[in-house]
Computed example of a mutant assay.
Amino acid sequence: MAEAVEAAGFTPSILKIVQPAAADAPAVERYMVRIGLWSFGQRAKADKTVKELKEQGIRAKTDYLGDDGAETTGPWDMRVLMVDPRRFRGSYRTSVGKSVAKRETTSSMSKLNGAIAGVNGGFFNIHTAKALQGDPVGVSVVGGRLLSEAVPGRSALVITEGRRARITELETVVTAVSSDGTKTQVKGINRAAGPEELVLYTEEFGGKTAADGGIEAVIDSQGMVVKLRQAGGIVARGTSVLHGTGLMAVWLQEHAVGTGMKVDTKVIDMRTRRAVPLTPTTYAMGGGVGLVRNGRVRITAAADGHASVNMMLRRHPRTMVGVSKSGGLILATVDGRNPGVSVGASMVEEAHLMRWLGAKQAINLDGGGSSVMVVGHKAVNRPSDGAERTVGDGLFITP
């Protein structure tokens, strides 16, 4: 790359960068080719150079040094909210807003839940149809109802009995059992179905299922299959829908005609191998990466699918949640992408921040333009998009 840049008439420099080691991934040496150095007020000159490079067929972008993860003195602008479990008498809860399928702002979900404060939740699926992008990537339990399946082994926040919070790794097991005793695995919940998949849609879905040529069994609240239909319909209140494609569509036609159908859902704590009780006071939210475990920095980037320079080393706006030794909840946001005001944080920096704040366990939530903390239903930080982004779910503190 440096040779190509030099041949185009520019003077390159080669910078070695090290992607930090995670608990489950080694450090990786990488290299970056750089051209020129301008003050932030001279960005137009940097942009002009990038344009000239692209005209020569060289991929390039303008970059801000404060974002690259090298040592810095900041500045940082962050918000921290801590709950004292000895004095707090309210509760914690997660929310997907008015429906699973559609995205909403965190402040809108805050109003819906009558919350005191809250933050955006985990990652959501931007690689699906626009009408389905509110679907959380990872586990979601709201009021004891499983609304999105877990990514096995990914870190998650679990809330039980209103305000007992812990962080662990979860897996979900969902099984459809017909009245003739035949069983089969349900691969997904409230998301688009892949080939040869059985997916469950709950009444919280809030959208039309995909008309993908599959077959659907509509199940009433008593567990009876009230009809089979071609895929592509609403999920009415008091019902759920099993959506099958390929061989799973054939399975529905053979085992879900005029019969009962039970859908058994389990959420398993992978640390204890015990089932999480799905009661009306149970909530769970998937995180992006584990940051702190048993009071020590332990970044599980590979297990959580984020062992990359961009996610681990580069600075971005971040949202974090932690649990203190006494069981208190710690919420934090670090603003970023705002040179001279706040540079954001790397995953290593946010892990050390949460440990310094007293978190015994902590995880990273969705960041970037999604990062927001709301108090009194209003954002108290500066979202990097310039306004609140619509997201898949949120975590809230209620009276």
Rank of each mutant, 00 (worst) to 15 (best):
I234N: 13
A236M: 12
V241H: 07
G244E: 01
S240R: 09
A210M: 04
S221P: 10
A211D: 14
I215T: 11
A210W: 02
M248T: 08
G238W: 01
D212V: 05
G246E: 11
A211N: 14
G214I: 02
E216R: 03
R229I: 12
G246T: 08
D212C: 06
S221V: 11
V235Q: 08
V241P: 06
A211Q: 12
T245A: 00
G246Q: 12
V218P: 06
G223R: 14
I215S: 04
Q222K: 15
A217T: 09
S221C: 09
V235L: 10
M224A: 15
K227P: 10
I215Q: 00
L242C: 08
M224G: 13
T239F: 06
I215F: 01
T245P: 00
Q230L: 08
V235C: 08
A217F: 02
A211S: 14
G238F: 00
L242Y: 04
I219E: 02
T245V: 03
G244N: 02
R237I: 05
G233R: 01
H243K: 01
V218F: 00
I215M: 09
L247M: 15
G246L: 08
I219F: 02
M248H: 10
H243F: 00
A210C: 03
Q230H: 09
D220K: 10
M224S: 15
A217L: 05
L242I: 06
G246A: 12
V235G: 07
S221A: 13
T209E: 07
S240A: 09
I234M: 12
L247W: 13
G213H: 03
A249S: 07
T239L: 07
T209M: 05
A210Q: 06
Q222F: 13
V225E: 10
A231T: 04
G213Y: 02
V226D: 09
D220C: 04
G213R: 04
D220H: 07
V225N: 10
G213K: 02
S221Y: 12
G232S: 13
T239C: 03
A210P: 08
G223I: 14
G214R: 01
L247Y: 14
L247E: 15
G214A: 06
A217G: 11
G214D: 03
V218Y: 02
A217W: 01
T245R: 00
D220E: 12
A236K: 13
A211T: 10
G246N: 12
D220Q: 12
M248K: 11
K227F: 08
M248N: 11
G246Y: 03
A211Y: 09
I234G: 14
Q230S: 11
V241A: 04
S240V: 08
A231D: 03
V235K: 05
E216T: 05
D220I: 05
S221K: 14
L242D: 06
M224I: 14
G232K: 04
V226S: 12
A231P: 05
A217N: 09
V241I: 13
Q222A: 15
R229N: 11
M224E: 15
G213V: 01
V241C: 09
G232Q: 10
K227E: 14
D212A: 08
T239K: 05
I219V: 13
I219D: 03
T245N: 02
S221F: 10
V241M: 07
I215E: 06
D212G: 09
V225R: 07
M248V: 06
I234Y: 11
S240L: 03
Q222E: 15
K227A: 11
V235F: 04
G233S: 11
I219Q: 01
A249I: 00
K227Q: 15
I219C: 03
R237N: 10
